[in-house]
Amino acid sequence: MNITRRTAIAAIAALGVTAVPAVAQQYPTKPITAIVPFAAGGPTDVVTRLVTEHMSRTLGQQIVVENIGGAGGSIGMTRAAAAAPDGYTIAVGNMGTQSAAPALYPNLKYDPATSFTQISVVNFTPQTIVSKKTLEPKDLKELLAYLKANSEKLNYGHAGVGSISYVSGFVFNAQFGFKPALVAYKGTGPALNDLVGGQIDYMVDQSLNVIPQITAGTIKAYAVAHPERIAALPDVPTTKELGVDFIFSAWNAMVAPKGLPKDIQDKLLDALSKAMDDPTIIKRYEELGSTAPKGADRGPAGLQKLVESEVARITPVLKAAAAK
């Protein structure tokens, strides 16, 4: 039985590590903590556990996921920013913590662009425009026209201020001038539940949350807000092919506290890259409707550019909403 053996190995490893002082050996010499600023089981947590399990094998040390939830992820990221830059604390934030947070939390204690040593984007999850099953419009064009005429009578559901569905919905509604009533839920689960039950009318949410419902036909999908179709939803068109200018992806990114030595940064990036290229993980990503960053998107420079451009894109929309 695998479990008991693994437990035993972990136990021995833990005891062994306590006894050996960590002085000037090859990094890493002890378990690494990966802070996930959200509750266990959410999209960021799942992706983090997927890649860190693989990274642990590459690095030869366990990466322990520590969930520090609260305040839309900003509590966990604040703690990550304040940790020692020795490579033993890393964190995985998402679009919310790394680009929307400054606009949402005026006394935020970190700056996503400068408080961290960027490692890389871990995955992109395109947003999908979905509605309850009984909504009239048949395709995206019809939906946009319908929303234009009726949006004030409709209800948009989101998973709470600062959540991905809140931010993406905000950008979507603002861009096309829709003014639905916003119904706030605590988390994606209850919101989705009421969308399936027809209590609310439409949502823009991460594809990984809505794929099972779309394939089962309990909700309607209009488009994926992405340049290419995603493997898990081959029949759902993209906004790009329909000629609608709305591209929106949620993403998760691995970072470390500011001042991480270059060699450690490289080591972590290398391990993460190996994980993202692993066939099993690529397959899991596909099932989640996610894609791994490729080419220039991968690595610290790509992440830095993404953070800066997303902050620039999202902040004005949210600020305008707050001023209202």
Binding site: A39, A40, G41, G42, D45, V46, R49, L50, G187, G189, L192, N193, V196, L208, I211, P212, Q213, T215, A216, T218, A232, K283, R284, E287, L288
Partner: peptide, 23 residues
């Protein structure tokens, strides 16, 4: 769809194991 936090975690566990929970 998870009714509480533990069930949300169960969904996370399913996804990690390559099962997409759904209808």
């Amino acid at each position: 769809i998870p009714p509480n936090a533990v069930m949300a975690l169960m969904i996370g566990a399913m996804t990690i194991h390559g099962i997409v929970p759904g209808p």
